[in-house]
Simulated assay, not measured.
Amino acid sequence: MKNRGCTLQPLYPHPQLKRYNKEDRVLRKKTKILGILILVPSIVAIAIFVYGFISWTFKVSTSDWNSFSKLARGVYRFVGFRNYERLFMDKRFITDLWNLLFFTVMFMFGSIALGLILALLVDRGVKGSRIFQTIFLYPMAVAFVVTGTVWGWIFNPGIIPDSPAGINLLLKSIGLENLMWKWYISTEHIGPFNLALIPVAIAAIWQMSGYVMALYLAGLRGIPQSIIEAAKVDGASSWKMFWKVKIPMLKPITLSAMIILGHISLKVFDLVYAMTGSGPNNVTDMPSIYMFELTFRSNRYALGSAISILMLLAVAVVIIPYLVSAFRKE
């Protein structure tokens, strides 16, 4: 039987549709080329001014350019890792590493503890909490140089006991002369821990605790209210709710804060340099200060470059595992 009511027509794309597809392909190609052209200057700049300079610094660290005359001649002589060996035999550099370790521990845990306390207080929503939130955040907007200068005035010991200054003057005025101390010029130590680092850590904590507060405040306000209500229904006290509910949910915030603070502390320079410098017997010295003095005051470019490469590796050890973990989660 013939089917007269249905005639099958070959399905060919409409000419108008073909033209639209072609225009779409051309537009996508132009967009792709435009994107590449926009990115190329940034990629070239990063390649030259970041990775190029890192490579050059490493090359200098393996040379014998430890005087201006050798640098001026431009004759490169490869000495391997001799400069790194010299650093680890240098008593000042070993002292700097201990100072950096103790400063990092005090700075990191002090900022996290104070930031968490401030976040909990602000999160209670009491009257005027927004004003205090702004006040707590304000130090983060101040440059480290300014912070170091101001806290240098505060902890300036003056001449004890006849002519105290700073906080010692306050202690004397309220009858607590026995508590007067040399603060950041003190040479007292407990093993490798120089007590003069305590005022430096206090200044750094004051500056960054507001930033940590902002991180924790965002985390606290991101906790679903349903979880809080469920914990209350189960009879959890405020203390148990804090330790069993809030703290576990704030773990990613804590990890992020530790990474950021660790990165800042490992390359700290301006705060310490403005506040104390190296201090007597290098009690507040840091690798960054030693690098600055070696490179720009002693013209020992190879040793200064070796310190900068070691600092870069220390920061990489902190940052790279965190970045790898974050990318895997995404």
Rank of each mutant, 00 (worst) to 15 (best):
2 K>L: 05
3 N>T: 02
3 N>S: 02
9 Q>Y: 05
10 P>A: 08
12 Y>C: 11
17 L>A: 10
21 N>I: 05
22 K>V: 02
25 R>Q: 10
45 A>L: 06
47 A>E: 01
48 I>V: 03
48 I>P: 00
50 V>R: 02
54 I>G: 01
55 S>R: 03
58 F>S: 01
64 D>N: 03
65 W>L: 00
72 A>T: 06
73 R>T: 01
74 G>A: 04
75 V>F: 06
78 F>H: 07
79 V>T: 06
80 G>I: 01
87 L>F: 05
91 K>T: 15
91 K>L: 14
91 K>P: 13
92 R>Y: 12
93 F>V: 09
95 T>D: 12
103 F>N: 03
105 V>R: 04
106 M>D: 07
112 I>M: 12
112 I>P: 01
113 A>H: 15
119 A>M: 14
126 V>R: 15
128 G>L: 13
128 G>N: 13
130 R>C: 12
140 M>Y: 14
144 F>D: 06
146 V>C: 08
152 G>W: 04
153 W>M: 15
159 I>E: 12
171 L>F: 10
173 S>T: 05
191 G>S: 05
192 P>G: 09
199 P>L: 03
200 V>Q: 01
206 W>E: 09
214 A>V: 12
225 Q>N: 15
227 I>G: 13
230 A>N: 14
239 W>K: 15
251 K>E: 07
265 S>Y: 14
268 V>S: 06
274 A>E: 04
279 G>L: 09
280 P>G: 11
283 V>F: 07
286 M>S: 09
294 L>K: 02
296 F>K: 11
299 N>T: 04
299 N>K: 05
304 G>D: 01
306 A>V: 00
308 S>A: 13
313 L>E: 04
324 V>N: 02
